[in-house]
């Protein structure tokens, strides 16, 4: 966990909300919810040490392992 990265991302999120606030206010509820959910996911992910965290890449590697072995045998 790196607090520096987390606070940087928090500042960026704050800037994005300030910058988009005027336009996002006029959009319907669904758009606003999507906007904030994406920001929350981004904020939550910045809490972790991402390069060494298992993620979608690890998932795909375990799904495609038989094909990966096939490629290595070529």
């Amino acid at each position: 966990m790196k607090w520096g990265i987390f606070f940087c991302v928090l500042i960026i999120i704050g800037v994005i909300i300030l910058y988009e606030w005027k336009t996002i206010k006029t959009y319907p509820k669904k758009d606003r919810i999507t906007f904030f959910i994406l920001l929350i996911i981004a904020g939550a992910l910045s809490l972790f040490d991402l390069p060494n965290l298992p993620g979608p890449v690890t998932l795909l590697e375990s799904i495609f392992q038989p094909f990966g072995n096939f490629m290595e045998s070529l």
């Binding site: 991302v9 960026i12 999120i13 994005i16 910058y19 988009e20 336009t23 996002i24 959009y27 319907p28 669904k30 758009d31 999507t34 906007f35 994406l38 920001l39 996911i41 981004a42 992910l45 910045s46 991402l50 390069p51 060494n52 965290l53 298992p54 993620g55 979608p56 890449v57 690890t58």
Partner: peptide
Amino acid sequence: WLNLTDYKPIVWPLGILIVQLSFWSLP
């Protein structure tokens, strides 16, 4: 996919996610 009225407001939040995805599990 979500039937939003416009894609423009989600471009910046998506940008943060894309930067994070470019590092995720790739040391």
